[in-house]
Every structure is written in structure tokens, then in C-alpha cells.
Design a protein around this nucleic acid. Sequence first.
DNA 1: CGTTTAATTGAAAGCAGTCAAACTATGTGG
DNA 2: CCACATAGTTTGACTGCTTTCAATTAAACG
Lengths: 251, 251
Amino acid sequence: MTIPPFHLLVRKLAERAELSAADREALIALPATMRQVEPGAYLVREGEQVTHCSVLASGFAFRQKLTGAGARQILSIHIPGEALDIQHLTLDLADHNVQTLTRATVAIVPRKRLIDLAEARPRIGYALAVAAQVDASIEREWLLNIGRRNARERVAHLLCEVAVRLDALGLADEYGYELPMTQEQLGDAVGLTAVHVNRTLKALEADGLVKRRGRVISFPRWRELRDVGDFSSLYLHLARQSFAAAGAAVG
Amino acid sequence: MTIPPFHLLVRKLAERAELSAADREALIALPATMRQVEPGAYLVREGEQVTHCSVLASGFAFRQKLTGAGARQILSIHIPGEALDIQHLTLDLADHNVQTLTRATVAIVPRKRLIDLAEARPRIGYALAVAAQVDASIEREWLLNIGRRNARERVAHLLCEVAVRLDALGLADEYGYELPMTQEQLGDAVGLTAVHVNRTLKALEADGLVKRRGRVISFPRWRELRDVGDFSSLYLHLARQSFAAAGAAVG
DNA sequence: CGTTTAATTGAAAGCAGTCAAACTATGTGG
DNA sequence: CCACATAGTTTGACTGCTTTCAATTAAACG
């Protein structure tokens, strides 16, 4: 399903910063080019000039960077409604890559227009800064996850994070959610190999902590999974405590 | 040596954003409380309300977060002149801890004053946003470092980063620099144990890539160390290419 | 100088990686 | 609708990097 481009974004931004009706309209009125893109399409490339910023209207995306030897580290996963490149809003050269995970619809906005809007409407600038800082907070948690947790904890933590974030948007339900990532990609997100991700998922499944049907994943024992993943949603800086964040089961 | 509180910061901010003379004066005129703090002092605590923002006038600091089991991941290292808590400028609750590494002098500014100033002077707001986004870029590189590089590469990369950043401020010279961190702390910064950091440093030393006298470290073969660490300074978003960044030897 | 903290070294164990093969979806063309 | 091709998942055996545990040496400090 494709959602009107900016509505989800506006809703997301408005959760944490106060936006007037005029602010909201200004956001929705941004000159955006809607584009359908294939899975794996590059939206931003490391080292290149940053000329635009996009919003995910539907589909999933991720940010990524590569070592000289070609190993990939996924830096974050993005779900519908999220702005994809506010990280570079004030930087001229991209320091990482942004790619779609699935087929996706993106609304592309010239970077300059967004900067101008932020300057003309401070509350929008502030709201964008909040969004960027929340993304940074998530990256910090990933640093902790990869640097100091073992495989089982890492995988559990990632599954919890995506569940809570999707739930906050109403995109996850009692049946769990579909995580459109290969195990190779999951591995690159948590600093493991695909093989080891597989074994870890199998183990979590054997312990009854997750259930899988293809890539649809659900959580028979949410509380326990949260404990295994050492997950606490503080770092997501959610405005309202969603029921999942508060500790209830997502599925 | 203690440096007049905001001068280094102003210089740092002005590198990447244009600040008028009035902007600079407004920054320098900020109501700051100067404070001498002991090594290990907490400037911000995870979960607490963020009421102020500080600037390191002298000494080193770091940001950090802990797993439920108590393992620590250092998220970044801060050198004199850097703002210590712009990560939380738009967030109410701190998502990580900020601590001094050495005895340090910090200039403490009420968060609200900084936000007000940013609103009154958009260029300052922009400059602060740039600084925050550069910090985030460094965190992303650390994610890649920890997630996808082995011990030797990680340690080399960290040493290179600190060298280039200090050099950009003129705080590193041909004799290298003093890194006031224990190997325990180094380990927590690169996702390794202290023991393995020790072995790794020893190996780099045996290979003639680094030289150590206590915690003063220098680089007999900078180029090679850079290659080992897969280090490229793009992600630091340095305004001018410092000679170290350009590939010359730091020591 | 004794005491504490940090650095160093050795031996052993273990978690995750590597390599390789089998299996299973998914998709395509005939 | 089937046969084949391709991408992704699963499993096993083995390797190895890093950790763990422990003890020793060196450095920092009052």
C-alpha cells in the first residue's frame, strides 16, 4: 500500500515537535517527485554531493557503508513514513549509502528546498533536527548492540526494535510483521554472518521466543524476547508509550 | 592548558558554517559556568532530563552507554574545543552517558539558552546542526569499524581518527599525541577486551606501525597504519584537508 | 616505599566464522 | 503446469579470532 507522501512524515514529526497547521501544510506542499524504485536501488551514494532528501511513502530502505575490503555494515533500517536522508541535511558530501530494501515509493525533495523551509519555519527545522537526533540515538544503540552483545542478544534486540517501531506506526499487529530482509542483510545489520544469523534465529525459534512463516515473524513470548535482547525503548524517544513499548505483547 | 571557553568551539563551528562577527560574539557571550571536573565525572546521565550542554575547554571526554549486564560501549571520544552534548539538544531525556576521561575544564551552558540562541540566530542553529551531524557521521564509521573490521583494523582505525582530529586542531604534532585512555577504555571503544587491545597494540608496535612511550603514541609509518586501519577521513567532514588527512605523516 | 592501578603474558575455552553441500522457495520460459 | 534456474535458507564439520582466567610485571600515587 502506498501512503500519501508526507502524511506519515508529518505525523511522525508532529509527535515530538509542535507543528502549527501552517507548518504542516508547508510540509505537505513541498515540491516532491514521486518515484517507484526497485529493491536495492541507491538513493544516496557515499562520497557524492547530496542534492536531495527523500521520504519513504511505502516500502523499506536501509543505510549502509562498506569497508575497503567490501564488507558491508547496515547502519539503520527505515520503515514507511520516515525521512531517508536528514543525516546529510547540513553536510555536502554523503558519508554513507542509502538503498531501498524492497520495491518502494519515495518522495524526492530538493535538499535546498528543505533547508529553506527549515529556515523560514523554525519549528519545521526543529522537527527535522529532532528526527535526525532520534536516528542518531538509534545508531548509538546499534553501536552498543554490536559492540557489546552476543549473537542471540543482537538478533533479539533488532527484532524488538523493528517490532516497536512498526507498532508505533500501526504497521505491526498481533500477527507480527514481515521483515523483508535476507539473513545476509540481517547479518550485515548486526555484525554477524548470514550463517550465524540463521543458527541464531533457529535457536530463538526452538526456544519458542519467535515464530516464523517465511519472513513474517511473530513473538509468542514478547516479554522474554525483550529480556533476551536487553531491549528498552527509551532510545527510540517515542512520544507516546505504545503498548508494545510499555511491555505488552506485539503478537 | 586551558583554552578560553568558546574560542575553540567557535573556530570549529566556523569551519563548516559561515558565522558573522555578531554570531561569534553571541556565542562567546553565552552565560557559561566554568567548572573543573575530575576524571570520570558524569556530565550527563542516561535517562535523565537534559538541562545543559557543555563545551570542553580542556581535557578529554567520552560518551558511553551500558548493557543491562553492565558491559560498556564507548560511543565517541571528545577532544578540547568540542561541544559535549549537542546530541541531546532537541531531546528531553538523555539516551546515553557523558563522562570526562581526564581532569577537564568544561563550560556549562543551559540548554534552553543554546536553543534560544539557535532560534534567534539561524546560522548558529545551522552550525550546531552541522556539528551534531558530523558527530553522527563519526558514530556511523564506528559502527562499521566494530561491526565489520577485525581487532587490528579497529585499533589502527581509532588511532588514526584521533590523530587526524587532534591534528586538525593543531593538538598533535610530529611527536604524535597522548591518548589518555586505559586499554580497558580503548577496548570499550572498539568492542574488544582490554587483553586483546594489549596484544593488538603490541603487534602493531612489533610491526613498526606505532611507537609508544607510556600513553604517548606516534606513527613511524603513518601511511601504512592508515591502510591497515582502512582509514579515510571523508567521514570526519573536515572543512580544509589537514596535512594528516591528506596523507602526510603525523609523526 | 608500600599500595593500587594498569599493562603484559600464557594457557585454555568458546563463540562466531569459513567452507561446502543440501535443501527450499521463488520465478521464468516453454 | 512442469522443468529448470536462481536466490535464499539450512545444516555439518572444521577453523580461528577473541575471550576468559590467572598470574606476573610495570607504572602511578600518596
